[in-house]
Design a protein around this nucleic acid. Structure first.
Lengths: 217, 217
DNA sequence: GCATGTGAATTCATTCACAGCT
DNA sequence: AGCTGTGAATGAATTCACATGC
């Protein structure tokens, strides 16, 4: 039962995977699913699935498995995606503009409410239905629109300045695509994504195949 | 000296981080750096830095630290980014077109040579200097152009079919942005990125602040 | 003295294995 | 019988601590 143990990033990540499998199972009409089946779909052991879920409660029935619909809803609640979030994007370059149009975000309840840039040619124009505002207006607009998450997609050189403003506006969650280290206060949650690093994993494995890890069970 | 131990994904990831810090240090004229300083920049312990590097050799000098330039070059060699790679992108939608224009890839030696789509309106047109080919031509064109890595940025529904073709063309490294589970043979290295999952980490922490992990040392 | 490189110790994550419920 | 939930066991990653060399 509901333990107050520290939850690891990998557990959260796997919850997201379970959520997607459960959504697919629900669509195909499954009522229940067992940890073995769920694990098979995500290439994880049944024990891993059960352990992950056990951090948050007991959602299954012995002998039967888990109710698909209920477990999906429960995970949505845990992940905080049983509601909508107001998101802003700073930087409407390559990545920023791609994310504005990214359908998956809408589907999961992440609504892009605002977009910012510092390029006068972009400011004031519409991009996929979103008005692009001047980044000078960042702080007041974040506040006024009740933005809860900000995606930073500006060049490395301007990222820290943007992040500082975002923090000052009271936003507690930031996802950065700028390839640089950023400082935020303790209470702000920051994740940094770097697409180039993903490709470096590939090149590492191509360059040094003998380091390659064996396939998961 | 050079141990043949299995290298974890997290170690590879950190090598990429070190590489970036070293590049910055080199630019600012530093000749040497110690594990403490490098660790501080990446929010890691000095021991972690030394251990990571020790998997691949001994690059430092006791009492002094590591030679910035040399260590950077060594890591580039380990990561396989001391050379260029031929990359193709399949799917010129939001994500795909963003990646075609993503400057960091070029900088790291990842050259986007080909782009594919199934939309007749896009096929034959230029996108940021890259000709968009018909995805029907995928297999022969990958072969003819010596493509070593493929980035899959198509909708979930068509991703497996694309991946199958890519595998048949002999490509051994795939980075997928499709939000779905993909099957590849043992010898093909596949990584799946999911932007929505990144946002779910944020919402998890916003929704349940009491689960939040303490800041790293 | 200073900082690396590395076994040993520790912490964290995963898997095992089984009691307990349906 | 079938499958969950969970302590115990194992395995992996990180940190400690110190011998070694500049």
């Amino acid at each position: 039962m509901y333990k107050s143990k520290r939850i690891s990033d990998s557990t959260i990540h796997r919850l997201s995977l379970y959520y997607r499998s459960l959504a697919a199972l629900e669509k195909s009409g499954h009522q229940t699913v067992c940890s073995k089946e769920l694990g098979k779909r995500e290439k994880l052991t049944p024990a891993q699935v059960r352990k992950d879920l056990s951090f948050f409660g007991s959602f299954g029935t012995r002998g039967l498995g888990y109710p698909v619909r209920e477990l999906k809803d429960k995970i949505a609640e845990i992940l905080g995606i049983n509601r909508t979030w107001n998101v802003a994007i700073v930087g409407v370059g390559n990545i920023g503009s791609a994310l504005i149009g990214y359908k998956e975000f809408q589907k999961q309840g992440f609504h892009i409410r605002l977009a910012f840039d510092n390029d006068q040619r972009k400011i004031g124009s519409l991009h996929k239905g979103i008005l692009i505002s001047d980044v000078k207006e960042l702080k007041p607009l974040l506040r006024k629109n009740g933005i809860q998450m900000v995606i930073v997609a500006v060049p490395a050189g301007s990222a820290q300045a943007v992040v500082d403003e975002v923090v000052e506006a009271g936003v507690k969650a930031i996802l950065s695509f700028a390839p640089t280290n950023l400082k935020v206060p303790e209470e702000v949650f920051l994740r940094t994504e770097n697409m180039a690093i993903e490709l470096e994993h590939l090149s590492f494995h191509l360059a040094k195949p003998y380091y390659r890890r064996p396939a998961r069970p």
